[in-house]
Design a protein around this nucleic acid. Structure first.
Lengths: 335, 335
DNA sequence: CTGAAAGCGCTTACAG
DNA sequence: CTGAAAGCGCTTACAG
């Protein structure tokens, strides 16, 4: 591989001058710069990122931390969209995306150690076990990060407006005449907390009683446990007319359970999802759901993270809240 | 940050000895090694990957090249599973995953230059425009790569047994009494070529005529264009009894088109997908499809790539073919 | 078994 | 405007 010294020799210049010419420093004559650029192109010069990183202490590598309790990983139907958008925006800004893991070579190390080892400049935390001690260690370190959906106090978060969005959804369902709305919510975390709070607030505002037997817990993206919860709800003597589910994927399980009971959606009972993934709109009936703006979430996450990397002295830690959009669909019908 | 010199000072040893102790070289006394390890732990030493890479010329970074013509990127419902499995296996072996792009900093560069710049040791090529000149440049370089689905002569490929798998699917459909089977295939590429060949071979073997009007082109993962193609097929005077689609996602478009025509699946007309993604089995009716073994594809891809990185003198370039599994589902009914 | 020395490819204060 | 020199943190042949 051609290096800067080869160019210097070819140009009869010092490596210092070549380096400056290549990096666009002002204190190089136009003539010299042109010659250096020309020769370096002729020689097929490609800089060495490791050498540059070693000297400048900058890698431009951004780490992704991305594992969820259901172990969807990269295949998560919602978060992969967030990530895709994040990646596009990060790369537009000249950074690179890499995945954080727990090793160097064959040795097991902590997430923070992996970041330090590889000179990761910033991390996006998506869809992880928020209580993992290694994760907490990372969030307390000096490495900037942006968290999606979970709030680490004092650090920037980006998330959907879960509380208000679910209220919007419930108001819509209410407007169709529903007065008995069950909620199969996801396992406890920040998102679940906000949505359950929104569910309760909407009930109070609309004058509907909150009934414990209408609230069940399931796992996110888990059609199986959501079907189980659906069966419990269908067994109630006073059935709800509509069931909210943790997300679109688990809504499929809910609908399956309803069909298995010989009922139909939305004629006998209505169902709403959450997320607005592609499949929710190509199935029949089209799902009533809240479409999270994954493009915006990923893009803002990238911009905010980069801002904080480049302004370590005055980081922007104000949480960013992105509105979701109600998709009316057809799975919630009029009463 | 603590470096190797700090440890050397603390241990009253040379950096050379510390380095050797840390790296498990044999020619260090057990006592010295223990002390070095202890001190380095006490000091919170973390090695510097850039420095190590600069010296050893090894980064352990594996690049992903992953963009498809429908621009699904990371959100591709099939390939994200391949990638997830690939990632897990790569990391198990102590390598890291990163994405290849076309820049360093704000400068536009070729894919190969990006790889060289960052010291990428190997690349997985998934789901890209195979004729991109920059891609061809990369495939002709000295950087080992593994290609999924597309065959670059002289380089290792991993792919499903498309030709035989679709024959298996057609034999099953035939066994249910179907004699008029249409095929909406994807846009031309290696996979499409093999599948179309399998479609024709199966027809010959089973004594069914190949009818041009039963073959339409669509795009992969595109429900819209597949619906359009379905409409053309439904307009035929002598309709087929079953339609094969490019993949499960586009099968939704096909089914939509059928429903819009007032027909039902599978009572009036049967539909088969391809891939076996999660949604194909939680929809109603469950889709008849070929389930690609994404876990195996990703895992083998990782192992083969690593093997070729670590054995540059005797690379293994034999193509790996993975069998798919027929999922009978319910969207293809008996005649 | 230990260490002195060279060097990986680059950048950057500093001198001229 | 150009260059000599130091140094980023590490590894490794070589000498002892």
């Amino acid at each position: 591989m051609i290096n800067i010294r080869d160019i210097a020799a070819e140009c009869k210049l010092s490596v210092a001058t070549v380096s400056k010419a290549l990096n666009g420093y002002k204190d190089v004559s136009e003539e010299t710069r042109t010659r250096v650029l020309e020769i370096s192109r002729k020689l097929g010069y490609i800089p060495n990122a490791s050498a540059r990183a070693l000297k400048t202490n900058r890698t431009f590598n951004i780490g992704i931390l991305f594992t969820d309790d259901q172990n969807n990983g990269l295949t998560h139907y919602h978060f992969s969209h967030v990530l895709n958008s994040f990646k596009n925006e990060i790369e537009r800004s000249g950074y690179n995306i890499t995945f954080i893991n727990r090793r160097f070579g064959q040795e097991k190390v902590s997430l923070l150690q992996n970041c330090k080892f590889r000179g990761i400049e910033g991390v996006i935390i998506v869809c992880v076990d928020e209580n993992d001690p290694e994760l907490l260690e990372l969030t307390k370190s000096d490495i900037p990060f942006i968290s999606v959906d979970h709030v680490y106090p004092g650090s920037p978060t980006i998330l959907s407006d879960n509380r208000n969005d679910i209220k919007k959804l419930i108001r819509y369902i209410y407007s169709l005449g529903h007065r008995k709305i069950a909620y199969i919510h996801g396992n406890p975390n920040n998102v679940t907390y906000e949505r359950v709070a929104g569910y309760k607030e909407a009930h109070e505002e609309l004058g509907m009683p909150i009934r414990e037997e209408y609230m069940k817990e399931s796992y996110y993206t888990n059609a199986y446990t959501t079907r189980r919860a659906t069966e419990q709800i269908l067994a109630l003597s006073d059935r709800p007319t509509c069931i909210l589910t943790p997300d679109d994927l688990s809504a499929f399980g809910c609908i399956e359970g309803i069909k298995a009971a010989g009922l139909s959606v939305p004629d006998d009972i209505s169902v709403a999802g959450y997320d607005g993934i592609l499949f929710s709109q190509i199935m029949t009936p089209k799902l009533t759901t809240m479409k999270q703006d994954t493009a915006k979430i990923g893009e803002h996450a990238a911009r905010l993270l980069i801002y904080n990397i480049e302004n370590p002295d005055k980081p922007d830690i104000s949480p960013v809240v992105i509105k979701s959009e109600l998709i009316k669909g057809q799975s919630v019908g009029p009463i």
